[in-house]
């Protein structure tokens, strides 16, 4: 089973997670920019975060054989703070960076006018940068929020196939599917979706334009939920090819629209062995353990 987790916040996860993810078949991830649990108070705090998404976190993932990509955006929650909104002018230069495969997560949290404005502005940035968009749907008032989300996307004029609408459930999947956008399901230990309900929706709506992620972050979540959903699909009678489509080919096709996705194996990585910076050196002591 090869897996591209299209939505996971690895900055909040440990190296044990990276090891377990590799063992479960995860070979690539996309980490969207989101809020850190603690509110930021300045644009500089965002640029440090963005730098780490395209820098340190990518390096860390590669140490474990996993290709790391990023989606960059001002998240809806912090779009409400004028001190944070200043980062919008910095975002275009990040959208040019290697491995930035989308604008995201954008969307609504509390559906305020400030969120509306930041959402629309960033859809425009995506169009200018020729990137797809990862859209977060709100936890509260989800159905109304999803309807409003689709309206804003339609007004932007972005083609529906460039948009992945995430955190969907039984009540919101049809809206997104019928609009021709990609439908994302965040499989969580006890909120959002679970494996069984996700598989039921795959049976009902098919495997086209359907995407499964763990959305694992600093909250109670599980970076192996993608693999568990794949096993649940097989148990429910889906073929290996169906699983490959949902867990690998679909997210690869969606983010591949950026022209910036790298999916070949990390060079020099051998599972279970510490990564070697160069073959001239034997018995290397490595970053996994050592901080010089």
């Amino acid at each position: 089973m090869r897996i591209l987790d299209p939505h996971i916040h690895m900055t909040s996860r440990t190296t044990d997670d990276y090891e377990a993810m590799y063992a479960a078949g995860v070979r690539a991830v996309v980490e969207p920019a989101f809020w850190l649990g603690q509110p930021r108070t300045s644009a500089a705090s965002f640029t440090d975060y963005f730098d780490s998404l395209v820098g340190w976190e990518r390096f860390r993932a590669a140490q474990f054989g996993i290709r790391h990509h990023a989606a960059i955006a001002l998240n809806p929650k912090e779009a409400n703070d004028p001190r944070c909104r200043e980062v919008l002018t910095e975002i275009p230069r990040y959208l040019l960076k290697d491995g930035v495969v989308a604008v995201g997560e954008v969307g609504f949290d509390s559906m305020t006018p400030a969120e509306d404005e930041a959402f629309a502005a960033q859809l425009e940035l995506a169009r200018d940068a020729d990137l797809p968009v990862l859209v977060h749907t709100p936890h509260r008032d989800k159905l109304a929020g999803t309807r409003r989300t689709l309206d804003v996307v339609r007004e932007s004029g972005l083609p529906p196939e460039r948009v992945l609408v995430d955190h969907l459930n039984e009540t919101t999947v049809a809206l997104v599917h019928d609009a021709g956008m990609w439908a994302g399901f965040s499989v969580y230990p006890d909120t959002k979706m679970d494996e069984r309900r996700t598989v039921a929706l795959l049976r009902e709506y098919g495997t086209t334009r359907m995407i499964v992620n763990s959305a694992a972050d600093w909250g109670r979540s599980d970076p192996l939920k993608t693999a568990r959903t794949g096993r649940e699909m097989l148990a429910a009678g889906f073929s290996d090819d169906d699983v490959d489509q949902v867990l690998w080919r679909n997210p690869a096709e969606f983010y591949g629209q950026s022209g910036n996705l790298v999916l070949d194996p990390v060079p020099g990585f051998v599972a279970g062995e510490p990564p070697a910076p160069g073959v001239e050196f034997e018995g290397s002591s490595v970053l996994r353990g050592v901080r010089a």
């Binding site: 230069r93 040019l96 290697d98 060079p267 020099g268 910076p277 160069g278 073959v279 001239e280």
Partner: peptide
């Protein structure tokens, strides 16, 4: 910013310095 995508990202000396 585009150099990696256009020029490639491989090592200059793959035999002795694969990364």
């Amino acid at each position: 910013a585009l150099a990696g995508r256009r020029a490639g990202r491989g090592p200059l000396h793959p035999a002795t310095d694969p990364a």
